[in-house]
Simulated scan of single mutants.
Amino acid sequence: MLRTRLDLDRIRAARQVIDPVFLDSPLYPCEALGQRLGCAVSVKVETANPVRSFKGRGTELVVSRLGRAAVVCASAGNLGQALAWSGRRRGLEVTVVASRGAPAVKLERIRALGAELELVDGDIEVARERASEIARGRGVRLVEDSLDVETCEGAATIGLELVGGDFDVVLIALGGGAMATGVGYVLKSLSPGVEVVCVQPAGAPALTRSWHERRVVTTESIDTIADGVAGRFPIAEVLEDLLVVADDAVLVRESSIVEGMRLLLEHTGLVVEPSAALGVAAVLEDPERFAGRHVVTVICGGNVDLEAFERWTTPRR
């Protein structure tokens, strides 16, 4: 039995708590994308839901255990939307702290879903500090993505939907680690022959470096368009889980992320945020590793500013 903070029975039970709108997301092979990448490719699409990301699976689980308590979180955008959606459904007051530089589309959706939004100058780590201050000052629950095991076990329900599939590798975007540890835990428990590969931008490498060095490694700055996975301070408990369930963690270049977004648009019709293209980027950078294998990549989010998306993906002339 794998020794992590996660539990299979709790993960199975989570499916009874999470709103069905987030469950059983599409999983299908994409022959055209596979031909371009030189391997069989299936996509697990976590954007076909009200918050356009996988985060709703975790926030549904968190909020279901809170009663009527108010909550606050720091977010790059997707967690805040998901917590606002889940909280509104249950009549909770939700406060989200985000960077002023976060994509406008994410900030607008947080407000539209009824949450109080506070913006800070700086990155997600600054937002986390402010969220902690609010939690202490107001005496409300602080929701900490990836540290709160519910966020990991909610994401782990993706893994339950992958178990039994005819594939060799699952590529998972790596940010705070909730999805990687959750999906990885389920696959290593129930489909141990499947390789779990985590993918992170080279411009935000902290958790990948930590995995390779087997200790928490922090960075002073972030330089990536993949805002959803851009953290500087890995969480020790999350790293301990990741060391148990991940087979590898790799870094990819910004140019590969952009090309991955373009290929997903061209071959699947999906408009995705940069974090969702990390799996495709990993195959682009190391095609020999995946040649002849069946790869599943989790399309984790689709909240992207359309002007930025067009700028990134339109070929320069």
Results as ranks from 00 to 15, higher is better:
Glu125Pro: 07
Leu83Glu: 06
Gly67Val: 06
Arg65Trp: 00
Gly34Asn: 09
Arg111Asn: 03
Gly80Arg: 01
Arg89Tyr: 00
Val120Leu: 00
Pro29Gln: 09
Gly101Cys: 07
Val120Tyr: 01
Leu37Trp: 02
Pro29Lys: 07
Ser75Phe: 01
Thr47Ile: 15
Gly122Trp: 01
Ser99Trp: 04
Val94Leu: 06
Glu116Tyr: 01
Ala112Met: 05
Arg100His: 11
Gly80Thr: 03
Arg89Gly: 14
Ala74Met: 09
Gly122Ile: 03
Glu118Thr: 12
Phe54Thr: 05
Val72Tyr: 05
Leu119Pro: 04
Val143Pro: 09
Ala98Gln: 00
Val94Glu: 05
Glu116Phe: 01
Asn78Phe: 08
Glu125Lys: 05
Ala131Arg: 05
Leu83Gly: 11
Arg88Thr: 02
Ala74Arg: 05
Leu117Val: 06
Glu118Gly: 05
Gly58Tyr: 12
Glu129Tyr: 06
Gly56Met: 11
Ala69Lys: 15
Ala102Asp: 01
Val120Lys: 01
Leu61Val: 11
Thr95His: 04
Lys106Gln: 06
Val41Pro: 09
Ser64Ile: 06
Gly77Ile: 03
Ala102Thr: 05
Gly139Arg: 10
Gly139Lys: 10
Val120Ser: 00
Glu93Cys: 08
Ala48Arg: 15
Gly34Ile: 05
Asn78Tyr: 09
Val94Trp: 02
Ala32Ser: 15
Glu60Arg: 12
Ser64Asn: 13
Val96Met: 01
Ser132Leu: 13
Val51Met: 10
Glu60Asp: 14
Arg109Leu: 07
Val120Thr: 10
Thr95Leu: 03
Cys30Ala: 11
Gly87Trp: 02
Val96Arg: 01
Gly114Val: 01
Asp123Gly: 14
Ala98Gly: 05
Arg100Tyr: 02
Ser132Phe: 07
Arg88Ala: 15
Val94Met: 08
Val45Asn: 15
Cys39Glu: 08
Ala40Met: 03
Val41Ala: 10
Arg109Tyr: 00
Val72Arg: 02
Ala76Tyr: 03
Ala104Thr: 13
Gly122Arg: 00
Leu113Asn: 09
Gly137Asp: 14
Ser86Pro: 10
Ala70Trp: 03
Glu129Leu: 13
Lys44Val: 06
Val97Ser: 08
Tyr28Leu: 14
Glu46Pro: 09
Ala82Tyr: 12
Gln81Phe: 00
Glu108Leu: 12
Ala131Thr: 09
Arg136Tyr: 06
Ala115Cys: 09
Ala102His: 02
Leu83Ala: 12
Ala131Gln: 09
Val140Asn: 10
Ala32Cys: 03
Val120Ala: 02
Thr95Phe: 00
Glu93Asn: 12
Gly38Tyr: 04
Ile110Trp: 00
Arg36His: 14
Cys30Val: 15
Ala84Arg: 03
Arg88Gln: 14
Lys44His: 09
Ala82His: 12
Cys30Leu: 13
Ala104Arg: 15
Arg136Pro: 07
Arg68Gly: 13
Leu113Glu: 09
Leu37Met: 05
Pro103Arg: 06
Ala76Leu: 04
Leu61Gly: 12
Ile134Thr: 12
Gly87Pro: 09
Ala127Gln: 07
Val126Arg: 15
Arg136Leu: 14
Arg138Gln: 15
Ala115Pro: 07
Pro103Phe: 03
Gln35Val: 04
Glu133Asp: 14
Leu66His: 10
Glu46Gln: 12
Asn78Gly: 04
Ala40Ile: 02
Val62Met: 13
Gly87Val: 02
Arg141Asp: 09
Ala131Cys: 10
Ala48Trp: 12
